[in-house]
């Protein structure tokens, strides 16, 4: 199963697909070029937007959910855009392993200090406030973080 995210503000997957017009405007207004339209000929998903955080993560600018004409992407505050959640593998993380103090993920997190905190001021940890934008996954030098899309959680 492919592991791409839907753009921020996306409704639950089934509802999202029922509403998405496949017009690609979310991808066109994305200033970080992270949203890509699904290619290929699968008639049920072709042309729907997806984000692959390893390539380009979402920075939660919320332009896409503002323009979506059919509200498949709801215009919600960035803190409530449940795209997924990030999982940190403490066995891989440089800081948790004790090699160096690396704060790449913490520094780049768009919801710094709500979605990601520093335990004891040093160790990065992901809280329930994480919306799964994938920035931390993108910047982690050790690929210790993966982002799980919400639709695979239920």
């Amino acid at each position: 199963m492919s592991k791409f995210l839907r753009p921020p503000g996306a409704r639950p997957e089934k509802e999202f697909l029922a509403r998405c017009l496949q017009c690609g405007q979310c991808a066109q207004v994305c200033i970080f070029d992270c949203i890509r339209m699904r290619t290929g000929f699968d008639p049920f998903v072709s042309g729907t937007p997806e984000i692959s955080p390893r390539n380009a993560p979402c920075e939660l600018c919320m332009r896409c959910s503002a323009i979506c004409p059919s509200d498949a992407l709801e215009d919600v505050p960035r803190e409530e855009s449940k795209m997924g959640y990030a999982k940190l593998d403490r066995d891989k993380c440089y800081t948790w392993k004790g090699f160096i103090i690396c704060r790449s993920c913490y520094e780049r997190c768009p919801l710094k200090s709500t979605a990601m905190v520093l335990e004891k001021g040093i160790y990065p940890a992901i809280t329930d406030g994480c919306v799964g934008c994938g920035v931390c996954e993108h910047v982690c030098p050790e690929k210790a973080i993966i982002t799980v899309p919400t639709r695979f959680v239920t």
Binding site: L21, G24, F41, P43, F44
Partner: peptide
């Protein structure tokens, strides 16, 4: 469950090729 008839829109495919 998806607007599947959209895929039969040839002008949409024309514009989508360039998108």
């Amino acid at each position: 469950t998806t607007p599947v008839l959209n895929q039969l829109s040839l002008p949409a495919w024309y514009s989508r090729i360039f998108q």
